[in-house]
């Protein structure tokens, strides 16, 4: 009996300690600095605007565009089908299932490369896969897809083909001269932001 009292007098204080201390919620980084540097140098996280335009035109279901700009900027203009995860919300629990998954291809974009690349670096260090960056961001998107410049006719065929593709994509995705009206249009047809429910709370009864 004495032994039991000793064990109980050990485990109860331990329980009180664990109840009293805050939970350790530090998020561990999974990649070493060297590994990350290597990936950054490769630049394999970058996806070209042409590839994204192609996927958008094809309505590729595996593509998930993620706008890391502020909500105000997102509401002003966003790419079709994208969701808004401002950089400051990147680590919120709500999005962790969304960012850390192996099914879809998440592509971060911002105005340039900076914010989206920051988002990619943070998620990559957490060990998340399937996250990419739209190369050049929306600025380059506007330049190449929405308002493609006709190449000089002396250029190689593939440049011409690229221009033709861009012109087609531009028409499909709302670019070109009618940019202003299209911005309006894309506003009205702005996709509903589907926030994935992370965990179902018990609605009583259990």
């Amino acid at each position: 009996m004495k032994m039991r009292l000793i064990l109980a007098s050990v485990i109860i204080p331990l329980g009180i300690i664990i109840a009293a201390v805050p939970e350790n919620t530090t998020k561990p980084f999974r990649l070493t600095a060297g590994e990350l540097l290597n990936e950054v140098q490769n630049g394999s996280q970058f996806i070209s605007t042409d590839q994204i335009a192609d996927m958008l035109v094809q309505k590729d279901p595996s593509l998930q565009l993620i706008d890391v700009r502020s909500q105000a900027e997102f509401e002003k203009y966003s790419l079709p089908g994208s969701v808004n995860v401002p950089l400051s919300d990147l680590l919120s629990k709500e999005w962790s299932d969304f960012l850390d998954q192996g099914l879809r291809m998440n592509v971060f974009y911002s105005n340039g490369n900076l914010k989206s690349n920051e988002a990619w670096m943070i998620t990559r260090q957490l060990g998340y896969k399937n996250n990419y960056v739209l190369q050049g961001g929306l600025n380059y998107w506007a330049e190449t897809i929405l308002n493609p410049q006709a190449p000089k006719s002396v250029l190689a065929d593939d440049e011409i083909a690229k221009y033709d593709f861009r012109k087609g994509a531009s028409a499909a995705l709302g670019g070109g001269n009618t940019l202003e009206s299209n911005v309006k249009e894309s506003k009205s047809s702005k996709p509903v932001i589907v926030k994935k429910k992370k965990k179902k709370r018990v609605a009583g009864g259990c």
Partner: peptide, 9 residues
Amino acid sequence: GVFALGLIL
């Protein structure tokens, strides 16, 4: 932690 303490008790 509080749940753990409860379970111990």
